[in-house]
């Protein structure tokens, strides 16, 4: 198997697989931990409905940061929505329901948001004091992915055929436009890295709220 074939036919599945496994491992590990000290913070939303409502509000609006840290919120909110948006738009594009331009716009946003956040974290005295190289690394990682995606997108060759093949479990190295390779590599590496970085908060948040902050007796 050539390197190109590996990248085209194995790597995407490997990355996704490791992402799912990594996430599952961390989820199960946290879930399996023994009963801990009760460290509830009062008051908390009553009932499952109330808690879900709070969570949904928090996830879709970043309400707490919006209220207390508006300048960071702009960047953080846009960044997270762009990440979700990228996945969604890509699927819609592959399904033929959205033009490639839509994906390109999202990628521009996915580039702009990290750049803004790097700047904010560099120039705001207080954010700088709590920002570690990891934050910058994560942001630059995302920005690099966006750049790679943008660099690939104006290509003459449509990536649609390749991705559709990938989704139907019939990956075809020949249909992979070469300009797309950096984006595939970066995207895959990001997926592999994600569960082990502190961006694992997409899982930890659940426990931190439901199992600790809102724990009943």
């Amino acid at each position: 198997m050539t390197g190109m074939e590996f990248i085209a036919r194995v790597f995407p599945y490997l990355a996704l697989g490791l992402f799912v496994l990594g996430t599952a491992w961390r989820f199960l590990r946290w879930r399996s931990l023994p009963a801990h000290l009760k460290w509830t913070l009062y008051p908390f939303p009553k009932g499952t409905a109330g808690q879900l409502k709070y969570m949904a509000g928090e996830i879709f609006t970043f309400g707490t940061i919006y209220r207390f840290n508006r300048r960071l919120w702009i960047g953080a909110y846009v960044l997270h929505m762009a990440m979700g948006g990228f996945v969604l738009f890509s699927i819609l594009y592959l399904a033929g329901w959205l033009p490639g331009t839509a994906v390109r716009i999202i990628l521009w946003i996915l580039l702009a948001a990290p750049v803004y956040l790097v700047a904010l974290r560099s120039f705001n005295k207080y954010l700088r004091a709590v920002t570690t190289p990891e934050e910058f690394f994560n942001l630059i990682f995302l920005a690099a992915f966006a750049v790679a995606g943008l660099a690939a997108s104006p290509s003459a060759m449509s990536p649609r055929a390749y991705f559709v093949g990938l989704m139907l479990m019939r990956p075809d190295a020949a249909s992979l436009p070469p300009e797309l390779v950096p984006a595939i590599l970066l995207g895959g590496l990001f997926l592999i890295y994600l569960p082990w970085s502190r961006m694992i908060h997409y899982i930890s948040k659940y426990f931190a709220y439901h199992a600790i902050k809102w724990q009943k007796n």
Partner: peptide
């Protein structure tokens, strides 16, 4: 220690460094 396992590791593993806490 079981006692602190989940909360402590979770707090040590994940902080978004957003400084929301500072305002409070």
């Amino acid at each position: 220690l079981d006692l602190y396992d989940r909360p402590l590791k979770m707090y040590l593993d994940t902080c978004a460094r957003c400084n929301n806490c500072a305002g409070q």
